[in-house]
Design a protein around this nucleic acid. Sequence first.
RNA 1: GGCGGCGUAGCCAAGCGGUAAGGCGACGGCCUGCAAAGCCGUGAAUCCGGGGUUCGAAUCCCCGCGCCGCCUCCA
Length: 489
Amino acid sequence: MKEKILKLYNTLTKKLEEFSPLNPPKVTMYVCGITAYDSPHLGHIRSAVVFDVLTRVLTYLGYEVVYVRNITDIDDKIINRSNQEGIFWKDLVEKYVKEYETAVEKLNLLKPTYTPKASEHISDIIAIIQNLIDRGLAYKSNGDVYFRVEKFPHYGKLSGRKTEELLSGVRIEVSEKKENPLDFALWKAAKPGEPFWESPWGLGRPGWHIECSAMALKYLGETIDIHGGGLDLIFPHHENEIAQSEGATGKPFVRYFVHHGLITINGEKMSKSLGNFVTMEWLFERFHPEIIKTFLLSMHYRSPLDYSEESLKNIEKAVYGFYETLYWAEKVQSLKEGLLSEKARRLEKTYQEFKVKFISALLEDLNTAMALGYLFNLEKELYNFVSKTPQLTSEEELLVKAIAKDLRDEASKLLGLFQTDPISFWKTEREKKLKPLSLTLEEVEKLVREREKARKEKNFQQADRIREELQKKGIILKDTKTETFWWVE
RNA sequence: GGCGGCGUAGCCAAGCGGUAAGGCGACGGCCUGCAAAGCCGUGAAUCCGGGGUUCGAAUCCCCGCGCCGCCUCCA
């Protein structure tokens, strides 16, 4: 068997590279988390989901992942927002961090090893800034401290930007406090009413990028294996992180930069500034967390992912199908001793192929779209087998159970998906969807039984009447040999 | 203007130099009391356009066109 190697697209080299960590079996990974000034939306969650899968794949390969996902809890936007709403900034932060954590928990994401907050690392931040000043890479000016971009020769190596070009850009804010318009703030003097900490340069607070350098260095060391975030962080955030960190340590900061694509709506970027975002709270009210997660994984992580309620509905169908198959697979019982039929052997073959292909897809730059494709193919074949084979043999029952188990194990181990037991999935999902219709599970079950009785008595008029009545409400019935299965659209 | 990405059937999309996956939709058949679901069958003279490299290109290179992102805060 071929050795298992993960390939990752590295923004630093703009190439697909074979991943190997600096100090195996340890892998150090730093992911830029949220700035806690507003409710989390799909875009934030895509980031968390992508790096969750990456962690799972690395763990599967035998690595020990040290995963840091920070929280930026002090910055301009937080201050502005808390002033606007008249809330103490810490309370504002706490509210949105909680919302984010709730979302992440619902999606069953692994807990990072550390989730540090900027405000709890002020002394580490101050130490780096002082170091940069000592090396001549930063200077103080009127209570602020700025990074001296021209003293860092590699500036622009990640984003492919040249300092001359940046200078010609019209959008750079010129400030008398800066020696050079490209210089960026490491420390900002406190204005009246703003939160502040003491520092050698007076009362103030950290600039935007420095907290990530400080926390990455503290928890993961001078050179980290993987640094991740959204594409939109490449410049200036990650570029500036490189400048600060490498400036301070003289060592390469990051070995693999991994950036995911953004969520769009009607082809346009979903963002707070455009106001076209859907919050997680809103989504959770409408869709099961695993549907949201499957949606996020249905596309390669570097591509843009266009959100629409319709595409989420499509994914819902697929996930419903999956849980229906698991439901039937669990109920299967053999009626006779015996070996595998030819059809069962074909199923087994697909199953064996699946095991190889599924992981290979993930190792190819985390191609979750393809991995899910294989997963659904096997699921479909399993469904077909279970629903079409009237009498399973003992061996066949074992096969079906093994596949159902493996389908869930593989999916849950590597994607963190399909971790719910099918019976309870259907119970909660049906109940949730019935609520807005003012119906209970019992009421629907009762109607379904009534219809089954009518059908047995060949009273099809009555049976169809019940079915139509339910259908009007979006409740779809499906008759099988053993029972009537139903779901709410 | 600079940097990056993308353009594959009605729609979503895989494809990583060897002769176009898959899903949704549509149509025909099987199954069904009728449905639903499932199964079987039906789709790109061809991958935005034009050149080039190669025995061979959707895949690599060049030139256009169109869309998106970044260049200011952003996941």
